[in-house]
């Protein structure tokens, strides 16, 4: 079973999370500051890290950088309500996902499961040519073809590039900034409405109900996430 490291200074929360995750069958290690988190992450070889950004000794951001220097394991940020900017910052530096306190435990468990699954899947099947996004939509990346209900969907170049960027890192929250960089390049970073407009196009073309999307999910004020079942 997978190993999870929790870096969280609030004892009530870390204790509750430990009990919760252990009841789900995970092996859990708790660290309550940045320094011990660093040691735990390097020595316990976790499959996933739950990280609180507000740590007593040093900002959690440093831990993200540290982990990313040697591993691409999923990192889920646990943060306070108002820290939009620190969330974006953490995501840009390589964190995969975030949850805003107070969060529901079922949501947390669902995210953990999704990240562990996709992480393994990507590792296993990097070379699969066709990827299924939903029951009706599939993408052939090398062939630059997108099918919906068996029919070809006509996408523009930018739309396709955007879709590819999302498919490359499924389930991960991708910030507007990151997507702008990937699809348009550094000169366009300030024009974030581009991403929104093209996301709207993609939803129109691929989703059954564009205003209640199934896999192209909006993270308000942060960015987008492609959910892979």
């Amino acid at each position: 079973m997978s190993t999870i490291v929790i870096v969280e200074d609030e004892e009530h929360i870390s204790k509750a999370l430990k009990i919760l995750l252990e009841s789900e069958g995970y092996t859990v290690f708790v660290a309550n500051d940045q320094k011990s988190g660093q040691i735990a992450c390097s020595s316990r070889c976790p499959d996933l890290v739950l990280l609180d950004l507000g740590l007593p000794d040093k900002d959690g951001i440093f831990l993200i950088q540290e982990i990313r220097s040697y591993s691409d394991i999923p990192i889920i940020i646990l943060s306070a309500r108002d820290g939009e900017n620190s969330k974006i910052n953490a995501l840009d530096l390589g964190a995969d996902d975030y949850l805003t306190k107070p969060f529901s435990t079922s949501e947390l468990l669902a995210r953990i499961r999704a990240h562990l699954r996709t992480h393994n899947k990507i590792v296993m099947a990097k070379n699969t040519s066709e990827i299924k996004l939903s029951d009706s939509v599939s993408v052939d990346i090398p062939g630059k073809l997108v099918y919906k209900n068996g029919e070809i969907v006509h996408l523009t170049k930018i739309e396709f590039r955007l879709l590819c960027a999302l498919i490359k890192e499924p389930n991960k929250v991708l910030t507007h900034r990151y997507l702008m960089l990937q699809v348009w390049g550094a000169n366009y970073v300030e024009h974030q409405h581009y991403v929104r407009i093209y996301m709207a196009h993609l939803r129109q073309k691929l989703e059954d109900d564009p205003s209640n999307p199934e896999f192209l999910i909006t993270e308000v004020g942060i960015g987008y996430r492609l959910i892979l079942k």
């Binding site: 974030q192 409405h193 929104r196 407009i197 996301m199 709207a200 939803r203 129109q204 109900d209 564009p210 205003s211 209640n212 999307p213 999910i217 909006t218 308000v220």
Partner: peptide
């Protein structure tokens, strides 16, 4: 401020209220 499509605004809201909306008949018209 930024330019945001109506679907995205509505979609995000419906997504966040998903569980509570189960018992209601939701109609979206853009």
């Amino acid at each position: 401020q930024d330019w945001i499509p109506a679907e995205e605004i509505i979609g995000a809201t419906l997504h966040s209220l998903k569980e509570r909306l189960h018992d209601y008949n939701i109609k979206v018209d853009v």
